[in-house]
Structure formats: C-alpha cells, structure tokens
Design a protein around this nucleic acid. Structure first.
Length: 508
RNA sequence: GCUGGAUUCGUCUAGUGGCCUAGGACAUCAGGUUUUCAUCCUGAAGAUCGCGGGUUCGACUCCCGCAUCCAGUACCA
C-alpha cells in the first residue's frame, strides 16, 4: 500500500456524537503523521434516516475543531462524489458482479416472512440466521428455479441481494489494535448488500467506496468489529486488496457502563456533541461543547487522551504535537469512560494558554451576551486579571461583571461574616486615604492603608473584605487595589458610599 | 441465547518476564501562598494489577479455565 489515505464516514442522521469526533481525530492524526490524505465521506444510504442539517453540522463541527479534510463533501477532490447517495448508480454493478461470480444471490423474502422465521426460532430458543443451513428453505435464487427467478426479476418483484458465505470457513481479520480476530463463517448471517429500494447497504457501499477511493487504513469504532469479517470477505470476493483495519475502543458513560449517549450528557450535565444541535422535528436542543464554553483545543486534547497516550507523561498537546506523537499501537483496547472533571481541567489550562487577542474574541462575546460593550483595552486588562478563575468561557461573566456594573446586591454570607459594627466608619476612613493619594498609586494607597490598620490595631482581613464587598458585592475576585485601579477612584467612592447606605450594620 | 472484544488506583492511563516495595494525570484530603474567591506550590491517601490454575529461578507482563462488563446479532449505519 503506497499512500496513506483514511476517511471519516459519518451518516447524516443527526448531530455528530463526540465519539465520532474522536474517531475522526484519530484518522486525521494518522493521516497527517504519514503525510497522507484525510477524507470526509457522507454515508447516506438509508434514506429513511436522513436528517436535514446534519451534513452541514458535521462540516461546521470540524471547522470549529480545526480538523481539516483534504477531500470530501464540501471540499471536492479527484475521487468524488463523496456522498453515497450521489454515487448510487455505481453500486448496482458491483452487486451484480458478485452475483455473477457466485458470491451473492437474490432474495425475495418479505420482511414479514423473515420476521415470522425469527419469531419461530425464538420460540424454540434458537436464533434464526439466513445462512447455508437455511437458504434452501427461504425464497431466493438458490432455492428457486432459474425460470422462477428470471420471472420474478422481470416482473419487478422486490428483491435484495445477499452475500453468500462459504460454509465452515475461518475468516481472520487482522486488526492493528487487537491483532488477529477469527470467526467461522457458519456463525455469520448472509448479510443484505443491496436493498430493495435500489440502494446498497453500508457494507457494500463502504467496501466499494473505500476501494475506489483508495483508502489504505480503515480506522473506525469497535462497534464495527463484528462486521469486519464480512468486509474482509467482500474484498476477497471482489479480488481487491483490503485496507488495514483498526477498531477503536468505545467511549463509555462516566458512571456505570455502556456507550456514552446523549441522555448521559443531559443527565450529568456535559455536552455529548461538539456543537449545539436543534432537532428539526422535535425542536429539542442538545448542548454542544462550543456553546458550553469549551475551547476546541481542549476538546481535542481531552479526546485524544481518551483511549490513547503518547507513552510519556506529557498531557498537554495541541493538534500539531498530537500529529507528531500519535501512533496506532498506543491506542488502548478497552473502552474509556468520559470524565467531566478532566475535561474541565483541560479547558482551564487552555484558557490560561490562549493569547489575549483570541481569548478576547470570546470574552467580548460573553460581555455582549450580557449587554456590555466595553473599551477593548480595558476589557483585556480585566480579562487578564480574572481568567485564571474561569474554567468555561461563560464563567467570565460572573467573574468580571463588577468591573462593568456596580453591584446591586451583596452576598449575604459574606456580609454576615465581614460587615461588623464600625465597618462603615472604617470604610469612610479608607476612602479618605484613597482620595488623599493623587494621582492614584496602588502601592502608596496599599501602604497607607496598611499603616492605618496597624496603628489602630485593626484587622487587615476584616477591613479589606468589607471594602471588597462594597466594590464587588461578594468575597471574590483579584487583589483589591487592582480592582480599584481598574474601576477608578471615583467609582470606588460611589460604590463604598452606596454599600454603606444599603448594608445595615448589625447591632451589638 | 449466540458470537466477538475487553479486564492495572474513583476516572484516564504507564507497564511487552527481573528496573514494580506498580509510575503519572484528573478528582479527593491535608498543609502553604493570597486581605477574599479562584489559581498556584508542597504533601498524603488511593490499585494484593478481575478470580483460579499453570509455565518459569522469577509474572501485572506468557498459557489455560472461570467471572464480570461491553459490542454485535436489521432491507441502520
């Protein structure tokens, strides 16, 4: 196999699941590391499950994440079209080819007839399987006479094309992560390759497309491992060289067991989708990482480490670093539980790392969402002061609001603890000191206040905290003199006076 | 049920026969820094490596069995 070419092939049935994002990420990393191509193919062979907007959503999600495709839907390329519905005309000939070579057959069984057989088998505690032992008892081109088959086909009777597994054959799939996986063909069901609606199933379309698009490595979720033998057989039936396979471990829900699902996100309060999604039918909204205030690099870093590690103790890695360090043989075999706390930690790290300009675009938006328009320089100064206490972008507001709007309420707990008899008088004195230093100088004011506190045998903590309550409305935020420096002496005077009027001193 | 896969601190993981009295990160707890909150720093606690058998001088690492969990079992992908 010469050139590395991998693909991400989602089906547009709704928003892209975060597990799918990870699959795409691993594909991307592998492609880029090997100087290969990464393509986006849309697998929309099931017309009944098509959801409008899903395709656009997928493209937008990867744009946000900074994962770029070299070819595919929305980009184009020499192997197009990249949407299976647009490739529809080419699949039938491949299905026919399989029939001619004896690797497949027509089946005319109605869904009802098959259902009946399944129920029948179930009643006897057995599993119905369309295979070498049951083909003859069903309605297909192997059990019917040639004439009958020809007549049915001609009359336009609905039919599907099924794969004909050779009996008792050990099929081995070589998986880059799990090694050889072998299964006997007797245990396999003659899968439908071509549906009665004229569309191929996933299996056929997938193999035909991967081959014609010259895909070298198929990196996909573990849920595909059971059907990998079929795919291997299909390549064999066509006489094509099969790509290499790698089946990724699943992303599990944080508590309990099982695949991470949308419901888990709702239940535990974290997004399961990269972007917010509004269901076109129900109107239901599902939260997204972007809207919840995650930085894309944090999402990527976190996802990369859920099932893979560089073999060193390095944890912070941007996309380029991941491209350099990634390797398939360091992918773990078992599923990984999603961990919200770790995701939060990563996001905090990347917020600290983000440069001012970029972080400001997010900060500005948060301000705007709360009806604040501010001078950019001032806003950046504030942002620098508070960013270490935000873990998610929207938290910027609760950490910064008092830099833009005077407090109207005072945290009762803080007041109870810090607002004592005589506080107002002390604060008036603080104001005097503050106003006496012209122009305002952080250090000088600080020293003078310190001096006052010490000479009057007062408690620095008590004084400073009541001061803080007046300015901030709560016991939080950066150094007090930084705050004064930002909001200004005049505003400080106003806020202290307002607080002294509004907050009642407890009586002794 | 059947088939396949997986199984190291609460979680993500390191570990490819002796370096493991099992390392790191998140979370937790305790101290420290800070006038507050957050951050940050230091430290602690936390896995008898799912269980039982082998193989070997020696096993988390190899083999077998069992258990548990997960996935698949559609004219869905």
């Amino acid at each position: 196999m010469d050139r590395v070419r991998v693909r991400f092939a989602p089906s547009p049935t709704g928003p892209l699941h975060i597990g799918g994002v990870r699959t795409a990420l691993y594909n991307y990393l592998f492609a880029k590391q090997n100087g290969g191509d990464f393509l986006l193919r849309i697998e929309d062979t099931d017309q009944t499950r098509f959801v409008p907007g899903a395709e656009e959503y997928i493209i937008e999600a990867f744009q946000w994440l900074g994962i770029k495709f070299d070819e595919g839907v929305g980009i184009g390329g020499p192997f197009g079209p990249y949407k299976q519905s647009e490739r529809k005309p080419m699949y039938k000939q491949y299905a026919d080819q399989l029939i001619e070579t004896g690797w497949a057959y027509y089946a005319f069984d109605t869904p009802e007839a098959l259902d009946a057989r399944r129920k029948e088998a179930e009643a006897q505690k057995q599993t119905f399987q369309y295979d070498a032992t049951t083909r003859d008892t069903l309605c297909n081109s192997l059990s019917l006479s040639k004439e009958e088959v020809a007549q049915r086909l001609e009359s336009g009777a609905p039919y599907v094309i099924r794969f004909k597994y050779p009996a008792d054959l050990d099929i081995t799939v070589h998986d880059l992560i799990r090694g050889d996986v072998t299964i006997n063909s007797n245990l396999l069901d003659d899968k439908v390759l071509f549906k009665s609606d004229g569309m191929p199933t996933y299996h056929l379309a997938n193999i035909v497309d991967d081959h014609t698009m010259e895909i070298s490595h198929v990196i996909r979720g573990e849920e595909w491992l059971p059907s990998a033998p079929l795919h291997v057989m299909l390549y064999k039936a066509f006489g094509w060289e099969a790509p290499q396979f790698a089946h990724l471990p699943l992303l599990l829900k944080p508590d309990g067991n099982g695949k991470l699902s949308k419901r888990d996100g709702d239940r535990l309060g974290f997004p399961v989708f990269p972007l917010q999604w509004k269901d076109p039918k129900s109107g239901e909204i599902s939260s997204g990482y972007r809207e919840s205030g995650y930085l894309p690099e944090a999402v990527i870093n976190m996802l990369a480490l859920l099932g893979w590690n560089p073999g060193t103790e390095q944890e912070m890695m941007d996309l380029d670093t991941l491209v350099k360090l990634f390797s398939i043989d360091k992918i773990s075999k078992s599923g990984a539980k999603f961990n919200l706390e770790k995701a939060k930690w990563f996001n905090h790290q990347y917020i600290q790392l983000a440069d001012d300009e970029r972080l400001y675009t997010h900060f500005e938006k948060v301000l705007k969402d709360h009806g604040v328009t501010a001078d950019k320089e001032y806003a950046i100064a504030v942002m620098r002061l508070i960013k270490e206490r935000v873990h998610f972008l929207p938290e910027f507001w609760e950490q910064c609001n008092y830099f833009f709007v005077a407090p109207t309420e005072y945290d009762p707990q803080a007041v109870k603890k810090r607002w004592k008899p005589g506080t107002a008088a002390h604060l008036a004195k603080m104001l005097d000191i503050l106003n006496s230093v012209q122009p305002f100088d952080k250090q000088i004011v600080h020293d003078k206040i310190m001096e006052y506190v010490q000479s009057n045998e007062l408690n620095m903590g008590a004084i400073m905290n009541s001061f803080r309550i007046a300015l901030v409305g709560a016991a939080k935020g950066p150094e007090l003199f930084e705050i004064i420096s930002c909001i200004g002496v005049e505003e400080t005077n106003r806020r202290v006076k307002a607080a002294c009027e509004k907050i009642e001193e407890p009586t002794l």
